[in-house]
């Protein structure tokens, strides 16, 4: 499964599962045009400015190996799980070996380049990573 397909599946799944009933009721409320029939929409139980869980997806940082990282990693998981790691070169090497065994798609002759990119951006001294604050998950 390539990245585009994976993202489409994820987007559809999230649309089905994560849109809160409050959003649906708000849309219904907006469709009602007759003032006599309209009721005030229930106040949302969360801050509606927050993104829906799973829809705010980070990108890998720029660099010559970004395309290799995109191809190797994003068919199965988002950037988040990579970007929150703070691993040494030895630890990243072990991760690459494990992921290649599990099917991560990157050319063998670009492994060292990918390893250097991961260590540079997500090594022990990289700046702290913060999670994305999102809405509750919906029912």
């Amino acid at each position: 499964m390539r990245r585009g397909t994976a993202l489409s599946v994820v987007a559809l799944t999230l649309a089905a599962l994560l849109v809160s009933p409050t959003d649906a009721s708000a849309r219904r409320a907006r469709k009602k045009k007759s003032p006599a029939r309209s009721r005030p929409a229930a106040a949302p139980s969360f801050d509606p400015r927050l993104p829906i869980l799973g829809t705010k997806l980070a990108e890998f940082p720029p660099g010559p190996a970004k395309a290799v990282a995109d191809q190797a990693c994003l068919a199965c998981h988002s950037v988040d799980i990579v970007a929150q790691q703070r691993l040494t070169e030895k630890q990243w090497g072990a991760e690459l070996t494990k992921m290649a065994g599990w099917g991560a798609d990157f050319p063998a002759d670009r492994r060292e380049e990918l390893l250097g990119y991961l260590v540079k951006n997500f090594g022990p001294d990289a700046a702290p990573w913060e999670p994305v604050v999102t809405r509750p998950t919906g029912r």
Binding site: V10, V133, T134, P136
Partner: peptide, 8 residues
């Protein structure tokens, strides 16, 4: 609210 640690 929730704290997303992995988008997918």
């Amino acid at each position: 609210r929730m704290l997303q640690r992995n988008g997918y």
